[in-house]
Design a protein around this nucleic acid. Structure first.
Lengths: 136, 136
DNA sequence: CATTACTGTAATTTTTATTGTTACAGTACA
DNA sequence: TGTACTGTAACAATAAAAATTACAGTAATG
């Protein structure tokens, strides 16, 4: 994860889970996170695509949770948001003439996959509802 | 991890582990990874600081592994290289007036710590020697 | 003892990624 | 028909990463 998209998505979902079905505007959400509303709307596109939230356009519109918080695991959020490899991808193309360079991408990918699976397994143990319950 | 430092460190260590004590120059290493030699040298500073490698200055100098490959676990490498939070830190400061915003950093940090621990646990199951053995 | 081949490191530039901003079309309520 | 939203595109600003240049320091070697 190179950017703060996971944190932003979790923040959005937590706000919505705490709103009890009430619609929240991207302006309001952005105010809580303290980022630009357009960034929130961009992130919402992705959260909608994955079925976590739905929105209502027009006046008095806004966003709401489209799935029960107890049925949203953090592994789901992670998978919805992830884009790049967990441990960072090398941008270079290793030297194919070097016996190590030639094969390292393959072996690194396997290593990364195992590491990521372990992490995702841990994330799957917590739901949005669990998370929300921690707030006073 | 925001950049490819983990991959670069692993690549360096794998080359050295395969070199059987022979000194490798940063130029040679950079050639295998296909990055700038200065980046290699910078990364070597860190690997030296953590005792994985040692170097010899001057003509015919170079770098060598300072620890047996079987005693270097990937979790050690990860810990030596890591700098930022695994899942990405939000740069913003959430709104302290919002009940969610006020507490989310704490709860997110706990979540991140658990996730990272799971991943590091997995990384600790593989040594540099295991990794090297996978190469033809 | 000068030349050569390295490491070590600082300073700077270039490139790429991320985040923020502006602008405006589309939608729905009142 | 005005107002308050979402949805998006285009672009600008900022930050982070990577590459480059430059050179001092060190050790082998003829």
């Amino acid at each position: 994860m190179n950017n703060s998209r996971f944190a932003i998505s979790v923040h959005i979902l937590t706000l919505l889970a705490g709103a009890n079905g009430e619609l929240l505007s991207s302006e309001y959400i952005a105010g809580s996170i303290n980022i630009n509303p357009v960034l929130v709307r961009k992130e919402l596109i992705n959260l909608k695509k994955h079925g976590f939230v739905a929105s209502k356009e027009g006046k008095n519109g806004g966003v709401y949770l489209n799935k029960s918080a107890a049925n949203i695991r953090f592994s789901d959020v992670y998978n919805a948001v992830k884009q790049s490899s967990l441990l960072g991808e090398a941008k270079n193309e290793p030297n194919p003439l070097c016996p190590i360079g030639r094969q390292i991408k393959t072996h690194l990918n396997n290593l990364y996959t195992d590491a990521e699976n372990a992490m995702v397994g841990q994330l799957s143990t917590t739901t949005l509802q669990n998370f929300l319950n921690q707030f006073d």
